[in-house]
Design a protein around this nucleic acid. Structure first.
Lengths: 346, 346
DNA sequence: TGTTGTTACTAACACGTGTTACTTGTGGAG
DNA sequence: CTCCACAAGTAACACGTGTTAGTAACAACA
């Protein structure tokens, strides 16, 4: 039996003032005059009674819930193996909580893909950050047209929804160029996910761009699809290893998938990077501890989340966005999976 | 300018009934008689107007927010490298959302360690799941005494708070016994975290228990502390490798830390498992793709979350708990880091 | 004395909902 | 006709808050 919460009425009675005064004092309303003595008395009584205004009472009258929804549209499989989603989430939370917002977590339910609409229709949240948007999601476009604050993490073709994303095309191109500069001409590619996902398309495009720049013809037999997991990387690489003419390098568009591909290469008796060099994508915390340490594209996970939160707050406060879409830069982290063993340090 | 939401009043007017009737129909209140025709009409109008009851209005009168708080008391560093926290979170969400609850995410703010108290004092949540409880957290005990529904993930000494945890002592003992059965007598140990954390203490205790059972004296010089990260594992292992008499096996109480230790072993020119066998703890999705694949203790991450959610729902609905604390079983997954290479399959 | 202005406060409304107690109409039994 | 039972529905309250419009007291000024 939890003790009854103190209401603003209780504070008012105890302090010998009206409920209105309590509200005015505690919310620091300016342009109104309250005696300093009264002011102090109210504050003291509020503290003494451990008074905290009830969120729903407040929300009912202000219309603001001070909560943002974080919708994870990815499949459970994908989330399980997404080693850096946590950093993104922390970034979001730290960013929005600075402005007094809370974060409501809503993973996708495969049975009810649009279940997150409930958050909006029941007025549970003031805005939404949607991670992993799907092209076929009509609901999200509807909310946007109605003026509901939304920021995407990832991009959607053919619509002007605000988004925060990494420049994945450029990142993938950078990774591929790195291999080309090392002298590789026959470079395989394993996607991070099905091409239904924008992020997979982008990384593939970057790979193709870099090849085109260098005048290397694309060979479709060198391109395979991964699906988030290390296992999928293992299988994709196994297929590539059965080709008559092997590649000398492979770009795997996800570190988690890459570690599977690396195991396939080892099982086939090939060495990394002497026989086949490997570049990943994401720079998960463990990438530097793979065998050999994985060259990869660093993805500013925390900053993605932080920026998305920042943008959403602007939208919710009706401040204009300086730019509707933000592409964060990325950098190559070159390690031994492409450079070879460094001389041992003493 | 979002279109104005429809209220129950709008539905009532449009259907030609009172607001009360709308509420009774839409909430399927039994023991009251409403004409079937009226009933149907209300439902149709509600759908037509896209009516969804406002969460805060509802909450204000029922006193229930249908939301649970998920408090992550771990440090940001720890969260970053916790590869399986996501699975736990998904487990919680799926479990509580089945009963109509939402999940509010509240990571620990190092500046305000008790910031999560706001969730309770402002009535934002009906219950709390607290991950990574700290011994010195007095606030949590206070809430418990006041009867506020709380479930811990992890344990706290000297208090009877409901918890869900894995039997880490037994798991660590199993890992160590596995090494002993393989003939190892000189077995090093690297903790997953500082011993301030209960989970680190438990895993250490399991290690000590197994050694004692087998009559192997403990050697403190073989015990080092890790701190969540692969880097910490690398350094701890480096220290061990400088001992005059090397161990033939090492039990690392976290897979993430273990991959760092494995790299240190390789850098020292030792082979796994021929020179030094390695056992981890957690069975993160990538563990099977380490080089060599890591023997480890499988931790039922999703089920931990699911069970914690289940327990919390019972508390919030005032159903009695069958047992205050739940220890989930764990199992050994033996791979090549202890068993050695399997014969190649064709 | 009347007018104006300022300080310090409060009464009353609005937000959207769930629920209790009450009313009205209708049919059947005695 | 009287009484009761029951179906069908509603008026009114309560939840806890922010805010607008208004009041009372008092001082300053012409």
């Amino acid at each position: 039996m939890p003790a009854k919460r103190a209401t603003s009425f209780d504070v008012a009675r105890e302090a010998g003032v009206s409920r209105t005064t309590v509200s005015l004092v505690l919310n620091n309303v300016t342009n109104i005059s309250i005696n300093d003595a009264t002011r102090q008395r109210v504050v003291e009584v509020a503290k003494k009674l451990n008074y905290h205004p009830d969120a729903s009472g407040r929300k009912l009258v202000t219309g603001k819930s001070s909560t943002v929804g974080l919708v994870l549209q990815q499949s459970a499989d994908q989330i399980f193996s997404d080693a850096f989603l946590l950093q993104v989430m922390l970034g979001i939370e730290q960013s929005v909580s600075q402005c007094g917002f809370h974060v409501l977590l809503k993973p996708n339910d495969p049975m009810h893909p649009q279940a997150y609409a409930q958050l909006v229709s029941e007025n549970l949240v003031d805005g939404i950050i949607l991670s992993g948007p799907r092209q076929d999601d009509e609901e999200i476009r509807k909310f946007y047209r109605e003026g509901f604050p939304i920021v995407l993490m990832g991009q959607l073709n053919d619509c002007s929804l605000p988004f925060v994303d990494v420049n994945a095309v450029e990142g993938a191109a950078t990774a591929t160029r790195h291999l080309i500069q090392l002298g590789h001409r026959r470079i395989a590619f394993i996607t991070n996910a099905s091409l239904k996902y924008t992020s997979a398309q982008q990384r593939r495009q970057g790979y193709l761009n870099a090849l085109a720049e260098a005048g290397i013809p694309t060979d479709e037999s060198l391109i395979r699809q991964g699906a988030y997991t290390s296992e999928s990387g293992y299988q994709a690489m196994q297929q590539i290893l059965q080709l008559a003419e092997l590649p000398t390098a492979v770009f795997v568009a996800s570190d988690v998938v890459a570690i599977g591909a690396m195991q396939a290469i080892r099982h086939a008796g090939r060495r990394i990077p002497e026989d086949i060099a490997v570049v990943g994508f994401d720079d998960i915390p463990m990438a530097g501890y793979f065998d050999p340490p994985l060259s990869t594209i660093r993805l500013p996970a925390f900053r993605i989340g932080w920026t998305a939160g920042e943008q959403l707050v602007r939208l919710m406060l009706n401040k204009p966005l300086e730019q509707s879409g933000i592409l964060l830069g990325i950098e190559l982290v070159a390690r031994e999976s492409t450079l070879g063993r460094k001389p041992k340090e003493l």
